[in-house]
C-alpha cells in the first residue's frame, strides 16, 4: 500500500470520462509522433504504465459507467499464483516473464501446435472494450480491456465436430509463480467454456488494459475475459488452449464444487453458500458508497439464449 500526499488525486476516486478520453488522445499523439521514444518520461503515480498498444475503441462496448482507475485494476487482484491476498500479485508478480511466451493449441482441431505469442496474435487487430467485471466475492470493476474476440482465434484453428468445449491452462512454473509452491489450489489453473460460449461475440482474449500491455498481476501476456461470468473464469497467463469433447475439470469447481460451478454465470438469484450475490461493492466508489444491485449475466443478457432450457439454479 502506498501513502500519497493529500493534494494528489485519491486512488479511490473514479477517473472521469473526460480525463480518460484525454489520455487516449495523449496516447494517439504519442503514436503519431512515433519518433518519440516509447520509454516515456516518468509519469505521475497511478497513471498507466507499460508498453503502449495500438487498439481501436469498439463503439459497441464503451463505458456507460465510470471506469475503475489503473491503480484499482492493477493492485486488487485474485491471482493465487502470486499469493492469496489481493494485494499480493501487484507486489510479487515481477517474477513472471511474459516475454518470450508461447501458447500450445491442441485437441480436437485441424490446426494444432505451439506458437510464439507474436505469431498467435499477428492476424488479429486489437480493439478496446469496456466490460464490467464481477468477482464471485461480490465486488466489481469497470475495465477497459485491449484484445480481440476469442471466436476469431478459435476459427483459425478449425475445431472439429468433436470439439464441444475449450479448455485454457495457466502457466505452471513455481519459479516464476511463487504462489504455486503452496498447494492452495491444484496447479496448473484450468478453466473452460462450452464451445457456444467460447464463440459468443462477448468472449474476449485480452492482452492489455488501459491501452497498455497487461501488467503481470493482471494475467500477462494473454488472458480470457468473459464478462457475464464470475471473475475466476477469466483464466490468466494462458499457455495452453485445448479443444475437448468433454467438460474439462476446472480449478475452482474441483476445489469446492458446492461453491463454484463450471458455468459460473453471474446470477443474483443464486447465492454463494456463504454470502449473497444480490449486490456487489463497486471498487473505487469510496468508503461510504452503497452497494449496487447485481444483474443477471452481469447485465449482458444477450447471452441468456445460450442457457435456454438449463436450470441456472442447479447449473451454477
Amino acid at each position: 500500500m502506498t501513502y500519497r500526499r493529500s493534494d494528489e488525486p485519491k486512488g479511490s476516486e473514479i477517473t472521469p470520462e473526460s480525463i480518460w478520453t484525454d489520455r487516449r488522445q495523449v496516447v494517439r499523439t504519442l503514436l503519431a509522433a512515433s519518433t518519440v521514444s516509447l520509454a516515456a518520461p516518468s509519469v505521475a503515480a497511478g497513471s498507466p504504465t507499460g508498453r503502449i498498444l495500438e487498439a481501436k475503441r469498439n463503439p459497441a462496448y464503451v463505458a456507460d459507467e465510470p471506469l475503475n482507475s489503473w491503480d484499482d485494476i492493477t493492485t486488487y487482484n485474485n491471482f493465487y499464483e502470486f499469493g492469496t491476498d489481493k494485494s499480493d500479485p501487484a507486489r510479487s508478480a515481477g517474477t513472471l516473464r511474459p516475454s518470450p511466451w508461447s501458447v500450445t493449441v491442441g485437441g480436437e482441431a485441424e490446426v494444432r501446435g505451439t506458437f510464439s505469442l507474436e505469431d498467435l496474435l499477428k492476424p488479429h487487430a486489437l480493439e478496446e472494450r469496456v466490460y464490467r467485471f464481477r468477482c464471485v466475492e461480490a465486488w466489481s470493476m469497470v475495465i477497459p480491456w485491449v484484445g480481440f474476440p476469442l471466436a476469431e482465434l478459435i476459427k483459425r484453428f478449425k475445431p472439429t465436430s468433436k470439439a464441444k468445449f475449450v479448455a485454457f491452462t495457466t502457466l505452471r512454473d513455481p519459479v516464476q509463480m511463487p504462489g504455486q509452491r503452496s498447494a492452495v489450489l491444484d496447479w496448473p489453473y484450468v478453466e473452460g467454456l462450452r464451445m457456444d460460449e467460447a464463440v459468443h461475440p462477448l468472449a474476449f482474449l485480452a492482452v492489455g488494459v488501459y491501452g497498455r500491455a497487461l501488467p503481470n498481476q493482471n494475467g500477462a501476456p494473454l488472458r480470457l475475459v468473459v464478462p457475464w461470468k464470475y471473475g475466476f473464469k477469466n483464466v490468466k497467463s494462458i499457455v495452453r488452449i485445448d479443444f475437448v469433447e468433454h467438460a474439462p475439470t476446472t480449478t475452482w469447481a474441483a476445489a469446492n464444487p458446492r461453491e463454484y460451478g463450471f458455468f459460473a454465470n453471474v446470477n443474483p438469484a443464486v447465492d454463494h453458500p456463504r454470502w449473497s450475490q444480490k449486490t456487489e461493492r463497486r471498487i473505487g466508489s469510496g468508503v461510504f458508497a452503497p452497494r449496487i444491485a447485481t444483474r443477471p449475466f452481469n447485465g449482458y443478457t444477450e447471452v441468456a439464449s445460450l442457457y435456454s432450457g438449463l436450470d441456472l439454479s442447479k447449473w451454477i
Binding site: 500500500m1 502506498t2 501513502y3 500519497r4 493529500s6 485519491k10 486512488g11 479511490s12 491503480d71 484499482d72 493492485t75 486488487y76 489481493k86 494485494s87 465486488w139 461493492r281 471498487i283 473505487g284 469510496g286 468508503v287
Partner: peptide
C-alpha cells in the same frame, strides 16, 4: 487517506 486502505476500503 482512504486510498491507503486499498481498492476495497470497506
Amino acid at each position: 487517506h482512504p486510498e491507503s486502505l486499498g481498492a476495497n476500503p470497506v
